[in-house]
Design a protein around this nucleic acid. Structure first.
Lengths: 185, 185
DNA sequence: GTCTATATAATGATAGAC
DNA sequence: GTCTATCATTATATAGAC
């Protein structure tokens, strides 16, 4: 087994569920059964682990986007795939919120150097969604539509995390799909 | 000076800006110039301080709502006052996000007992907004409209915190006001 | 009511044996 | 490459003098 990769995977998991600050080396070490001292052969510091976790999430996001490009022929269907993340991941969102939003907020509060890196995941979705809205014919307000969709999704995730109300989630996701379908070609 | 109140005020300030986990007794003590040992005369633990901070925020929220009831004659204007929080507090939101959403998410991640208490601030806004939409004549979907507005505001706060894009904020706030004004009486 | 001194546990990080 | 042992620092919390 690749220990370095095991560390990244376990840290990714724990940073999402328990937060970066609240995750200790002891926590990570115990889940993959290595000693605390072993970390420093693979990473110089906790910050370097965070950096690797963010990079892994960025890479995963890129792969998701590539998959949507392959599976869906129309930009409308690709945007619909983005909206459906909320439904697909509803169990995790109810427990831990949106992985992108919660990490960006947390790193911002502790003034962490890696906050801009974490924010790049938002930027990736933003620019990709903008491109999709352009392909839909909305050249002028494509970025505004992308930001509208991103912020609305983010808000749904936060409120679903707080109230865990499935009918709320389904209703809001339905409204997003309706909003998307009323946008003219 | 009331030391107990000073502790609550300083903790309120720091929990919002730096997060609950990342705020230490040393941080609070140094801002109001007391010793660390003095805390335990006023509070049994850090959790008791958190509890007092959340209660203070709940009380403040109730006062805000009472003020809106006094100042604004129509439910539509009262809801508009809620929307305008985003603009009024934009500087703090850009730096630290929404105080309600970020604390609720953080306490959820560390599995803190006080998370339901923090969530009550959301519930307070939710039930008050629901009442306003009922007064607007939307008896059937008042709670859905309240949740829609809450989640949308929450998403705007998160994305404004990430990108600090004022034109985005103004555009989304404008859309919320437009959405409110197109709701029939 | 406030302080100093201290207890105890946990943190991130290092050194060096194997 | 992994371990044990240890360091320095910080954390929450307690005891007791004033």
């Amino acid at each position: 087994m690749d220990t370095r990769q095991q560390i990244i995977d376990a840290a990714d998991h724990l940073f999402y569920r328990n937060g970066f600050t609240h995750t200790s080396f002891t926590d990570i070490a115990s889940t993959i059964d290595i000693s605390r001292g072993n970390f420093y052969h693979h990473f110089k510091s906790k910050n370097e682990i965070l950096s690797a976790v963010i990079q892994a999430r960025l890479d995963r996001t890129k792969q998701f986007i590539e998959q949507w490009e392959k599976e869906n022929l129309s930009p409308r269907k690709r945007i619909a795939s983005f909206i459906n993340i909320l439904t697909t991941n509803k169990t995790k969102i109810a427990q831990y919120g949106c992985p992108v939003g919660t990490l960006t907020i947390e790193l911002g509060k502790i003034n962490h150097d890696a906050q801009p890196h974490a924010k790049e995941i938002f930027s990736l979705f933003r620019s990709w969604l903008t491109e999709q809205f352009i392909q839909l014919g909305h050249h002028k307000d494509a970025d505004a539509l992308a930001m509208h969709l991103l912020s609305h999704s983010q808000g749904i995730a936060t409120m679903f995390n707080a109230f865990k109300d499935e009918s709320f989630l389904n209703r809001e996701v339905g409204e997003l799909h309706h909003w998307l379908n009323t946008l003219v070609d």
